[in-house]
């Protein structure tokens, strides 16, 4: 059984690609066969975050247009045996992606026995975003605890409930989850940032992960190593928890409360 998961948000820059990269690594690390697809046609970036940018020969649109086989375009990850990346095309032709083309590629991945297909959606609500969510079974809606991101997420939830194959066919709809990124427990405690509970209440969805604000995310993208693989980072642990929850394990949320510094840490800035 293959599960197709779209990672989406509406708003740009909230951490969709970071999340796609880390969730796919996390699932592959659990032994699942995973393909992660960049739907941001014209603005390819997942390859950089995954650290395979120099190994892109063929892309998503090449497969759709029959320039190569799917096997030729899938980039096998060098760290994880069962992980494959399909890069976005750099074409400026917005019509390069078609519903039937995407369906064909997904069907082939399903026939190949992939357990999970992650669709990294572009920002906005244009064609790329629409096609990234269209065939999804589940959606991870990435949201920052900030007004514009929350509002855009609600807009995306509306689209998930109407403009997907599952919604159109009426077979249960897409299962939706929230994933909060750039969360600062300190600012929440100071009343300067929306809390997990606030966002959950406004959007009315379950939270599958809360990723703390951290400099580790930039460091990881600089290196082309998905941040989940940086073992001694809170961000890595938070993403690892999110993967467990995706797989159905119930875990309490971590990194949501302010860490009180001890006396020595305060004195010496530890």
């Amino acid at each position: 059984m293959t599960e197709i998961i779209v990672v989406t948000s509406g708003k740009g820059g909230v951490g969709k690609t970071t999340t796609s990269a880390s969730l796919s690594c996390g699932l592959a690390r659990k032994g699942k066969k995973v393909a992660v697809i960049d739907f941001d046609i014209g603005l390819r970036n997942l390859d950089l975050i995954m650290g395979c940018e120099r190994r892109v020969v063929f892309d998503f649109v090449n497969v759709i247009q029959g320039d190569c086989t799917l096997k030729q375009a899938l980039i096998k990850d060098k760290r994880l045996e069962t992980l494959y990346v399909l890069a976005a095309s750099q074409t400026r032709d917005k019509d390069a992606l078609t519903t039937e083309g995407v369906r064909k590629v997904l069907d082939e991945l399903i026939a190949d026995g992939f357990d999970y297909i992650l669709c990294d959606s572009p920002a906005g609500i244009e064609k790329g975003a629409h096609l990234a969510m269209y065939f999804a079974d589940r959606a991870v809606v990435v949201v920052n605890p900030e007004v514009s991101s929350v509002r855009d997420s609600d807009r995306i939830l509306g689209l998930l409930a109407s403009k997907t194959e599952r919604a159109e066919k009426g077979n249960g709809g897409v299962k939706e989850h929230l994933l909060l990124t750039r969360y600062s427990p300190r600012r929440v405690a100071a009343g300067e940032m929306l809390s997990v509970a606030d966002v959950k209440e406004i959007l009315g969805l379950d939270v599958i992960g809360v990723i703390p604000e951290s400099t580790d995310v930039l460091t990881a993208s600089n290196a082309g190593t998905p941040v989940i693989l940086n073992e001694d980072s809170d961000v890595s642990e938070a993403y690892t928890d999110a993967v467990e929850r995706l797989l159905g394990t119930e875990l309490p949320l971590r990194f949501v409360d302010e860490q009180k510094k001890g006396f020595f840490a305060r004195m010496f800035g530890g």
Partner: peptide
């Protein structure tokens, strides 16, 4: 009031309004 409270109130109103016109 704390800015997060203001944010939550504003969002609650706009989200409800946009949901009612959705579809």
């Amino acid at each position: 009031p704390p800015s997060a409270t203001v944010a939550k109130e504003r969002l609650r109103i706009i989200v409800a309004q946009e949901r009612s016109s959705r579809g």
